[in-house]
């Protein structure tokens, strides 16, 4: 029996320029989150969790439906 010890998929955080207006640290990064209101692409401070920006993302976030791309016209 193989107990899974391999790390599974990860969300990669892209470094973002600037300093956090909340704590002043240069630990901003950009990544998607699921929260109240659905999916957002955020730029957040890794030190204090302050959101510099939160832009609504696609309704289903990273999911690609089987029917995605279907063209009927």
């Amino acid at each position: 029996m193989h107990t899974d010890v391999n790390p599974g998929p990860r969300v990669e955080r892209q470094p973002a320029d600037g300093a956090c207006p909340g704590c002043g640290k240069a630990e901003l990064s950009r990544y998607p989150v699921l929260s109240e209101g659905g999916w957002y692409q955020v730029v957040k401070c890794g030190a204090c969790l302050h959101s510099v920006s939160r832009k609504p993302w696609g309704l289903l976030g990273p999911i690609t439906l089987t029917s995605h791309g279907l063209v009927l016209d």
């Binding site: 599974g8 998929p9 969300v11 990273p62 999911i63």
Partner: peptide, 23 residues
């Protein structure tokens, strides 16, 4: 309510056993 999540951000990689994707 949906407000429960206001200060909770969840970071979810797609394709895990708790975040499966089709088909």
């Amino acid at each position: 309510t949906s407000g429960t999540y206001r200060d909770i951000d969840i970071v979810i990689p797609p394709g895990t056993v708790v975040s499966a994707t089709p088909p």
